[in-house]
Design a protein around this nucleic acid. Structure first.
Lengths: 207, 207
DNA sequence: TCTGGATGCCGATCTTGATTTCCACGTGGT
DNA sequence: ACCACGTGGAAATCAAGATCGGCATCCAGA
C-alpha cells in the first residue's frame, strides 16, 4: 500500500551544490513572481524545481531567507544596470533617456523579477523594507544629483523630485507592460523620459 | 479552574449594529495599516476593538471581506476627493496643483489609510487587484484628459503619461511623509506639481 | 414592576494549511 | 564493493482563521 520510491528517471540528478542552488533560485523566482511571497508554497517551489522539500531546506534555512536571497540578487542586478546607464554618457538629458530605457527593459524581462522589486507583498518585513529603501534611496539620489546639476535646487528638494521621477518610471513602466503593449518599448520609454526631462531641465527655483 | 466570565466592567458595552460595525472598521484600519494584511491577526483586531473574535465574525464573514470593505470605503473617499479637486477650477495648471495637494493631504492623514491603497500586501488577490486597477485607471484617465487638452497627444500616449504622473504623486508623497517632514506639505506638493506641470504643459508631439 | 424574547457578546475549541524536520533509501565515486 | 552524501516520503509542529453553545443585556408589553 505504501507509495513506491520514485523511479530513477523521475529523480532529480545529483548536482554540485552551486548548480543546484542556482536552479532552486530560478524555480523560486518563477513561483514568487507568479504568486507573490504569501501565495507561494514551498511545495510549489520544490515541485517547480522537480525536487523534494528537504533539498530546498538544505540550501536555504527558511522560506524567508530564500526570498531575501532572490531579492538581494535582483536588486543588485538592477542597481548595476542603472549605474551603468548613468555612466554611459555625460549629457544629462541622455542620462535620463538611458536610465528610463533601462527601467523599461528590466520590467520587460520575462523572468518577471520586477514583481519582487516593485510589487513585493512582504514589504512589512523589516529586512525587505530596508533593502528596498536602500535601493530606492540610492536611485533617487543619483537622479537628485542630475537635477541639482541642471538647476540650483538644494539637495533636500532635489531628492523629493528624484523620488517622484523614480516613481514615475516604475509605475508607468508597469502600466506599459500590463496594458499598453501596442506601444513599442522605445516609444513608451522615450515618451516618458521626455516628460521627465521637460520637467526637470532648468527647473526654476521659484514659481 | 475554569476561567471566570469577564466582569461586566470589562465587557464591551452593547452597541447598535451599525455603530459596532463602524468601530470594528476603525480598529481594523488601525491594525491593517500598522502591520499589513498578512501581518494582522484577527485576534489583534478584536483586541484593538476590545471585543471578542466572534463579534468580528458576526459583522464580517471573513478577514478578507473585512479588508475589502475597508479598501472599498477608502478608495471611494479618495476618488471623491480627487474628483472634487479636479472640478475646483478650470485652469489646468491649477488642477494639477489641487490634485497633487489632495494626494499629499490624503497621505498625511493620521489614519494611515494610504497604507491600504498604496502599500497593500494583498495585491495578488484578484478582488483587491481589480479594485486598485479600477481606481488607478480612473485617476490616470482624468489626468490623461488634462494632458490631451493641453497637447495634441493621442489618448493612448496621454494615458501612459497619466499613469506616470500618478506614480510620481504617490511615490513622492510617501517619501515626503516618511523622510522629509521638514518640508511643509504645501512646499513639497507645490514643488512636485510644478515638476509635473512643466513636464506636460504644451508637451511637444515629437522630440 | 415583572416577564419573555430577541439581540449582542464571550470563552473555548475546532480545523486547516503550510513550514519545517526525521529517517530510511539510492547513487555515484574510489 | 563500500561508504558518504544527496534525496524523498511522510509526519511533527504551529500559527491563525473560523465556529459552537451558552450567558448577559436591553426592550416591549402586561
Amino acid at each position: 500500500m505504501s507509495t513506491e520510491p520514485r523511479p530513477a528517471s523521475m529523480r532529480s540528478p545529483r548536482l554540485p551544490r552551486d548548480e543546484r542552488r542556482a536552479q532552486l533560485l530560478s524555480a523560486a523566482l518563477e513561483v514568487f513572481a507568479a504568486n507573490g511571497y504569501h501565495g507561494a508554497a514551498m511545495d510549489d517551489i520544490a515541485e517547480t524545481a522537480q525536487v523534494s522539500k528537504p533539498v530546498l531546506y538544505q540550501h536555504f534555512p527558511s522560506k524567508r531567507d530564500l526570498y531575501l536571497a532572490l531579492l538581494d540578487s535582483h536588486l543588485a542586478a538592477l542597481t548595476e544596470l542603472t549605474r551603468s546607464a548613468l555612466d554611459s554618457t555625460t549629457d544629462n538629458r541622455e542620462r535620463v533617456r538611458a536610465v528610463m530605457r533601462t527601467y523599461y527593459e528590466f520590467i520587460a524581462k520575462d523572468d518577471k523579477a520586477h514583481r519582487l522589486v516593485f510589487e513585493s507583498d512582504l514589504v512589512n518585513d523589516p529586512e525587505v523594507a530596508s533593502r528596498l529603501e536602500t535601493f530606492n534611496r540610492g536611485f533617487a539620489e543619483a537622479i537628485a544629483r542630475v537635477i541639482a546639476a541642471d538647476t540650483r535646487l538644494p539637495m533636500v528638494e532635489a531628492q523629493l523630485l528624484g523620488r517622484g521621477l523614480a516613481g514615475m518610471a516604475q509605475v508607468s513602466a508597469r502600466y506599459w507592460l500590463e496594458a499598453s503593449h501596442d506601444l513599442d518599448l522605445d516609444v513608451a520609454s522615450d515618451l516618458v523620459s521626455r516628460l521627465a526631462w521637460r520637467g526637470i531641465s532648468r527647473f526654476p527655483k521659484e514659481a
